[in-house]
């Protein structure tokens, strides 16, 4: 009954966006390596992984939102709020503990996410307008109430610095310099795994796919739409909280105007990963690959002879090209535009 032979599997693989994205990443990496042989070294890959883990974690959040048929542009404001408040609380209380920082940052994240969730699930405000408004409120409130002063490396509690330097697997280069696999990468992988488990093995996760597929059917089947939407935005807040702490630990510095403004590259990574913008379809693996592609591209701009000024341009281009491909595909598969909207 169920076909299981090899050619069938290959056919299925060829249908998936991830396959093509993977091939593009490989080809591009080889190209970059031909320009600079150190690109494909383990050290550089570990380094890229560490610096993009925060973005990857935020991308997971955006992925879930797009999956449910919405959009979120307030997650960067949430991330910086979590980070900056956590750092300030740690300094003020004198508690120098990274878990405490995570706790505060995530609490802030979940609370702000809950506000989004409430506005979207209860008041049925379009997700774009909601998050556009809350992004402004969250960030403005942070700067007004908590402050605008940057926290420099000297003021920063040690736990952040220690956490940022923590490597799990330490290797030594021939010239004697140590490098290693940052704990950031492990956190990112664990969160990706957790999200995958939620999406695949819980009723809640299937509910997210269901409301992205057909929200009316989901309601009739007995899914609690409001609850699911509420969860989604709280979870995005939680992820943003974690990303905030990773960010401060990475750059050993906290400026309350950082992170905000990077929404575009995160959204670009997710749509590049093949998540369908109309909801209901997309994979976590695709999202990870999207993040990898955007990271490699950003990282290699200078290598291919373009200044970092080109970054915005490419991010915009990535969004346009990838949504154009998926939109055009779905437009064609629906057939004549007349029959459906």
């Amino acid at each position: 009954m169920v076909k299981n032979n090899r050619s069938f599997k290959i056919q299925k693989l060829l249908k998936q966006n991830e396959t093509y994205l993977f091939l593009v990443i490989i080809t591009y990496s080889i190209f970059i390596t031909s320009l600079n042989s150190s690109f494909l070294s383990l050290e550089n890959l570990f380094d890229l992984g560490k610096s993009s883990a925060g973005m990857g974690i935020m991308a997971i959040g955006v992925f879930i939102v797009l999956l449910s048929g919405g959009i979120d542009i307030s997650f960067t404001a949430i991330a910086i709020s979590g980070q900056y408040i956590a750092a300030n609380v740690l300094i003020a209380s004198g508690v120098d503990n990274i878990f405490f920082a995570f706790l505060i940052s995530c609490l802030v994240g979940v609370a702000l996410g809950a506000i989004n969730g409430l506005l979207i699930s209860y008041f049925k405000i379009p997700t774009l307008i909601t998050t556009l408004g809350t992004a402004s409120v969250f960030h403005g409130a942070l700067l007004t109430i908590v402050g605008t002063k940057a926290i420099n490396s000297a003021q920063l509690p040690d736990c952040f610095k220690a956490f940022g330097a923590k490597n799990l697997l330490i290797l030594t280069k021939p010239n004697g310099i140590n490098y290693g696999l940052s704990i950031f990468i492990i956190i990112f992988i664990l969160l990706a795994l957790l999200t995958w488990l939620i999406l695949k093995y819980t009723m809640l996760g299937r509910g997210i796919y269901a409301i992205g597929g057909d929200i009316d059917s989901a309601e009739r089947s007995g899914f609690n739409i409001a609850k699911i939407q509420f969860f989604i935005y709280c979870y995005v807040g939680f992820l943003a909280g974690i990303a905030g702490v990773l960010h401060i630990s990475l750059i050993r510095y906290s400026n309350p105007t950082y992170i905000v403004g990077t929404e575009l590259s995160v959204i670009a990574a997710v749509v590049l990963g093949g998540t369908r913008i109309t909801g209901g379809s997309g994979t976590i693996i695709g999202t990870i690959m999207g993040v990898a592609m955007v990271t490699i591209l950003n990282n290699s701009l200078i290598l291919v002879g373009l200044s970092s000024y080109w970054q915005n341009f490419f991010v915009g281009l990535i969004i346009i090209i990838s949504v154009s491909i998926t939109s055009y595909q779905s437009k064609r598969s629906i057939g004549n535009i007349v029959f459906r909207r």
């Binding site: 009723m203 299937r206 796919y209 269901a210 992205g212 597929g213 057909d214 009316d216 059917s217 989901a218 009739r220 089947s221 007995g222 899914f223 209901g280 379809s281």
Partner: peptide, 18 residues
Amino acid sequence: SLFPNLSIAENISLNQMI
């Protein structure tokens, strides 16, 4: 009232699970 993006198996069984 089916979910186009989910598999046949899941469409059949999901309501019972709920």
